[in-house]
């Protein structure tokens, strides 16, 4: 079973990288890129035998405790 955890900055938190990337996109001609926010994707391979619910619960805990910085970031979990 695999899980994906998407970690994104909370809305309103400044993203200096996203800002610089957006500006660069604009200078090379991509004027349609109005805003860029950078996040992280974690792919977690899980041990066999977990139920879907248990997997979701565990990965959510992983995200809360380690993968995301709750001070500044939100996350979503997908398990399949």
């Amino acid at each position: 079973m695999k899980a994906k955890v998407y970690v994104t900055l909370k809305s309103g938190i400044l993203d200096p990288q996203g800002k610089a990337v957006q500006h660069s996109l604009e200078t090379i001609g991509y004027n349609a890129a109005m805003d860029v926010r950078q996040g992280k994707l974690f792919e977690v391979t899980l041990a066999d035998g977990l139920s879907l619910d248990e997997a979701k619960k565990q990965v959510t805990e992983m995200a809360e405790k380690l993968l995301a910085n709750p001070v500044m970031e939100n996350f979503t979990v997908e398990v399949e």
């Binding site: 200096p16 610089a20 990337v21 660069s24 200078t27």
Partner: peptide, 14 residues
């Protein structure tokens, strides 16, 4: 350059 944002040198390239 460009704060090393994205990865160092990646934005300076353009």
């Amino acid at each position: 350059s460009y704060g090393d944002y994205l990865r160092p040198g990646a934005i300076a390239k353009y």
